[in-house]
Nucleic acid binder design. Structure first.
Lengths: 243, 243
DNA sequence: CGCGGGTTCCAACAAAAGTTAAGGACGCCG
DNA sequence: CGGCGTCCTTAACTTTTGTTGGAACCCGCG
């Protein structure tokens, strides 16, 4: 796989969220990245593990999650190409959660040493990555609100719209139709509800003519009601670096 | 108020979570900080506001929260002396949530410019603060799990133990007895339940002889059952920098 | 000292979500 | 092509949580 394909989504995303310079782009293009293939539903970095590299998603979908003593799992975030979901491991060496693939993925690994040297050489890039982890935290905050305060149908709509807006940045939304490759079990784990209830909620959104969801793909039927239901305000994604 | 009192809790906390050097301590002691008093239940930084300074809690308790369209509020985190809850505003200028006091507070304000100059001068301090925002994110992740997966009594126990462990670092736990100055309304907002239900849960913990909670103070009655109920694993607080 | 506002506490009922169980669709692989 | 496993779907029932409304309590303040 050519180097620019590996880094394309990352650079595209950084341009939008951090206003990266051409010089910095060249630095990122020069980064040594070890590319590996992962099958669907596979752990990439485990909870409790000590990480020595960071993971760039080149292709495919990933999720971060935590499992509690009772065995129940909570999905914390969804991740798409161009993202580095475990950038935090650079400073928080032992993982407090798990990173795993949802679909088959192409992942690129960058060693902590390499990243630390890059930070020393280019403090601006370090700040850019810092900003990235702060946006990560902002997304967690919104996820708390979603799970804590919104009724289940609104939770689902909100997660869907967040995903759509992020996919849009990397050019992956066609006509309000986008990928969301989760099983109903996983949707339940993301929303803090059971799979049975997730099914009820999906059924209701379909019956109300708001969205269709099948085979990992979302089709919006009534954009206005979808937006209203989700109570979505995208400010937390901080997609404009100038603000 | 003498300068060392203002910075005491901050330095104490950084020593434990980041292994700060004496030289860095001196830099922090030299930071210009504007101290102001705030009454209880007062917004400090509002959602949507553009911040130009960061807020150090010198004395008192604060909380961060988001309010959704329906008017319901979700508390995202609790904050104690020595913490800088809005450090993220350094790079994410417009606030995506609110910071407000719970009790009467003494707050110290440090301008973004000052902090940015400090980062340039001492990259190690920048990394320390970065690490701090990453721990912040780790706490949000655990908060998601709490609100998403645990039954209400376990949620309450978990928030209580998290608070206790953090208070312990700054030397504010006496004999398993510690401050938690929230009304039942606020506890509900933190746990994603109503105030009525929060009351039920508190009543049950009291009846079961696990913890007592009155007038903003928690007294643990049965530590073993308290821990088991909370399903608490403090790794996410990342209190040991060496790991 | 009594008044008033904000808590705390509680009961009765309603709604949302969890549990259990089972049938059906779909795709993969032998 | 048939069997198997995963996922989806639904129903019936239980449990948890929300809602409403009201009483008791506490505390600061006039």
């Amino acid at each position: 796989m050519p180097s620019d394909t590996i880094r394309a989504a990352l650079v595209r995303r950084l341009r939008i969220s951090s206003g990266i310079s051409e010089e910095d782009v060249r630095e990122i293009e020069a980064l040594p990245i070890a590319v590996r293939q992962y099958p669907a539903e596979t752990p990439v970095v485990r909870d409790g593990e000590r990480a020595t590299e960071c993971c760039l998603i080149v292709e495919g979908f990933c999720a971060r999650s935590k499992t509690i003593a009772s065995g129940k799992r909570q999905i914390l975030s969804l991740h798409i190409p161009g993202e580095i979901p475990d950038l935090m491991s650079l400073f928080l060496h032992v993982m407090d959660h798990e990173l795993s693939t949802l679909t088959a993925c192409t992942l690129g690994f960058i060693s902590h040493d390499t990243l630390r040297r890059l930070h020393q050489r280019r403090p601006v890039v370090a700040e850019m990555f810092w900003r990235d982890t702060l946006i990560d935290a902002a997304m967690f905050r919104e996820w708390i609100v979603n799970v804590g305060q919104r009724p289940a149908p609104a939770r689902l709509a909100h997660v869907m719209i967040e995903l759509r807006e992020r996919l849009r940045v990397i050019g992956r939304v066609d006509d309000e139709n986008f990928e969301m490759p989760l099983t109903q079990e996983q949707i339940g784990e993301a929303l803090g509800i059971t799979a049975v209830h997730a099914n009820r909620v999906i059924k209701q959104l379909r019956q109300d003519g708001i969205v269709e969801f099948q085979r990992g793909r979302v089709t919006v039927l009534d954009e206005a009601r979808f937006l209203e239901l989700a109570d979505f305000d995208g400010r937390y994604l901080h997609q404009s670096p100038t603000l």
